[in-house]
Write a protein that binds this DNA or RNA. Structure first.
Lengths: 350, 350
DNA sequence: TTGAAAGCGCTAACAA
DNA sequence: TTGTTAGCGCTTTCAA
C-alpha cells in the first residue's frame, strides 16, 4: 500500500499526510503529537501515511502556534567587567570540563528533540543579546556555564524572569536554579582515604582562589585532615592546568621533600603531579599517594591510573537540562537547586 | 509622542506597530527588512513606532514564510565506525582549537543575527539526526568540524545536497566546501627559520599519523629541511597533547642528545618541549631553538614565548560561516574551498 | 510608493 | 473519537 510520493521540490505537509491516510489534518496532528483518543486503526493508518510521504513536522509552523522554540541557549558566560587577561569564552573549551557539560546536556536534550544554541556572553553587549534572544522567544530558556563567580548574567536572567539554570552555585544568592556538587564532601573523601592509607605528611594542590568550587575543595580537605589530627596542610596554588600542576608539585616537593600524599583539586593537575613525582624518582603510590578530583577522562588514562573524586558533571548537566525544561513547562515553578554527592573512585595512585 | 505601551503578557506584533505608526503591516515589514521604495518620512515614523512599542520580530513566523531558520548547525563529528578508544565528541573540546573555531564562527554569525546549534555526530544514528534536522529546515546548513579524516558525514551531507562547509580538507575528494591552511608552507617557514638561525641538528615532534594535517606538517618540514641539505630528520610522534609532547621530547633527547632545534606540530607540544628542555638544563633558544604551530593562546603565554607558525583558525572559521551563508542564499553555488596562508610569528624560543 | 489579502504549516478550540 | 475552523505573526504577490 503505497501512497503518492511527496511532491518533489517541497516537503510534504500535514495536509498531504491527511489526504494519504484519508483523515483530517487534526487527526494526523494528534497522532504525531501522541495525543490519546485516537482510534488505534487510524493511528496505524496515519503512521503508514507518514512513512509513505516521508513527512517531517515543520518546526517553524509548530513554534508559531505553540510558542515554544524547541531550542535552548547554552551560554558560556565570562567576565563581569573588562578586566584584561581573563580567559575569553573560547578558552573555556580548553578544559575537559566543558566537553562533559555539553555531552550531558546534549544527551538529555537530543532524545526530546531539543537542541542547544551556543552563545558567548562576556560583556554588557553580548549579555544584552542573550536576554533579547530569549525574550524574542528564539530559545525557551538558558543553560549557563560561568567562567567567573562574579558573572552578572545570572542576575539579569533572574530579574527578567527568564527560565535559566546555572552550573554551580552563584557567588551571591540569586533566585535562580542551579546544580552543583558537594565539593567539601568530595575533598573529605580524599582526606579520609589518604589517612586510611596511612599517609601522615600530606599536601594539596589547589585551584584558583577566586573560584568558590576550588575554595570549597581546599576547605573541605583541610577540615577533614584537621579532624584526623593534621591541622596544618601545605598547599600550592594552581589554576587547573597541567602546567600549573607541574609547577605546584615542584614547589611542594622543594619545600616538603618528605611528603607521602597529595590531593590535587582536579585530575589534570594530579596527572601533572604524577609526572613530576616520577621525574623525582618517587613511586606512586608506594612513596607518595596521589588523589585527583573530577574523574575526568584523563583519570583512568593516567599511569598509574588515578584515584580520584567523581564529579558527576554529565549527570549534573543533564539535570540542568531537566530543570530548565520543567521550568519552561511550568513558568511559575520556583527556583530549585540540586546538589550532587561526589564519590571516591579508587584506582592505583592511592 | 508616546505610542501605547505593548499589551502586557504578549509581545507586540507587526500589527501593533502598524497601528502605532498609522500605516499598514506591509509597510512596517518593508521598513524592518530594509526594502527600498519606502518614503523616508514613513520610515522614520515606523522606526519610532518600533521603538515605542518595543517590537521584535517573531522568528518562527518569519521562518514559516521565508523558509530560513536563521540558525546553522555546528557539528562536531567523530568516528566513522565503532572503533573503541576514540575520543568522544565531548573530548574534542579539550583542545584549544575548538574554542577558536567556535569563537570565529560566532564572531561572524552573531552580527548577522544567526546562531549556531551545537550537535554531536559520532555514529550512524546521530549522523542521520543531523541530516534529518537539516532537511526539516531547522537549520539552514552545517558547519562541520571532524575529529577524524574518515568521517562519513561530509559525504552524506554532500549527497543530500545540503549546504555544508568543513574545517579542513576531507581525506577523499568530496564535492563540498572547506577551508584549510597550507600546512606544508607553514612547516617550511619553521624549517627555514631554524636553518637561518644556524641550527643543524634539528628534530620534530609530530601529530597523529592518521591526521592529514599532521602529516602535511611533517612532510613539509622534512622536504624543506632536505632542500637545506638535511635529508634525515629525527622525529617522535605525539598526539597534540601536552603529555604526549613531554614524552616525545624525552625520547628525542635520549636518542639525539646533541640536537639544537625542535619543530613541534602544535603549540601545546612545543610548550611541553620547553618544559622538558629546561628540566634537562638546556637553554631555549641558546642551546635548543623551539618552534611550535598554531599560534594558540599558549604560545604567547609560554616562557620563553613561543616562536610559532600562525594558523589563522578564527579567520578560517569565520570564512566557513561566510561560505555557508553564501551557499544558503545561492543553493546552486558550487563547492568552494579557501586555503589560508600561514605566517611565522617570531617570539623568543627560536 | 502603499495597502489589501492570501497564505506559510501547524495546533487547539469547538462542534458534531 | 473525529472533523471544521480559526488563527499564530510574518512576507509577498497583486492592485491601486
Amino acid at each position: 500500500m503505497n501512497a503518492a510520493p511527496p511532491p518533489s521540490g517541497s516537503s510534504p505537509t500535514l495536509e498531504d499526510v491527511a489526504r494519504a491516510a484519508g483523515v483530517s489534518r487534526a487527526t494526523v496532528s494528534r497522532v504525531i503529537n501522541g495525543i490519546r483518543n485516537v482510534d488505534p486503526a487510524i493511528q496505524e493508518a496515519v503512521r503508514q501515511a507518514v512513512a509513505a510521504t516521508g513527512y517531517v513536522p515543520n518546526q517553524a509552523a509548530r513554534s508559531l502556534v505553540t510558542r515554544r522554540a524547541g531550542v535552548v541557549a547554552l551560554v558560556v558566560s565570562g567576565a563581569s567587567g573588562e578586566e584584561p587577561g581573563e580567559p575569553s569564552p573560547g578558552q573555556v573549551f580548553t578544559d575537559p570540563f566543558f566537553g562533559r557539560v555539553a555531552s550531558g546536556i546534549i544527551g538529555f536534550l537530543r532524545p526530546r528533540g531539543i537542541h542547544p544554541i551556543l552563545m558567548f556572553a562576556d560583556d554588557a553587549e553580548t549579555r544584552a543579546q542573550v536576554l533579547t534572544y530569549l525574550r524574542q522567544g528564539n530559545a525557551d530558556g538558558a543553560l549557563l556555564v560561568s567562567t567567573h563567580a562574579e558573572d552578572l548574567l545570572p542576575r539579569l536572567l533572574a530579574d527578567a524572569g527568564l527560565p535559566a539554570v546555572l552550573f554551580a552555585r552563584p557567588a551571591e544568592p540569586i533566585p535562580i536554579s542551579y546544580v552543583d556538587v558537594e565539593h567539601r564532601t568530595g575533598a573529605k573523601l580524599a582526606a579520609d582515604h589518604l589517612v586510611a592509607r596511612g599517609r601522615r605528611r600530606v599536601a594539596t594542590i589547589t585551584g584558583p582562589p577566586n573560584l568558590p568550587a576550588a575554595q570549597a575543595r581546599l576547605a573541605g580537605f583541610r577540615d577533614a585532615m584537621a579532624v584526623h589530627g593534621h591541622p596544618y596542610i601545605p598547599c600550592a596554588e594552581g589554576n587547573f592546568t597541567y602546567h600549573s600542576g607541574e609547577a605546584a608539585m615542584e614547589r611542594l616537593l622543594a619545600e616538603h621533600p618528605g611528603l607521602d600524599g597529595v590531593f590535587a583539586a582536579n585530575d589534570v593537575m594530579a596527572q601533572a603531579a604524577l609526572f613530576v613525582l616520577r621525574q623525582h624518582g618517587l613511586r606512586v603510590p608506594e612513596d607518595v599517594a596521589v588523589i585527583g578530583f573530577d574523574d575526568s577522562s584523563v583519570a583512568a588514562a593516567s599511569r598509574p591510573a588515578l584515584t580520584t573524586v567523581r564529579h558527576p558533571v554529565e549527570d549534573m548537566a543533564a539535570e540542568m537540562a531537566r530543570l530548565l525544561l520543567a521550568r519552561v513547562d511550568q513558568p511559575e515553578r520556583p527556583a530549585t537547586s540540586i546538589i550532587f554527592e561526589p564519590a571516591l573512585v579508587v584506582r592505583e595512585s592511592a
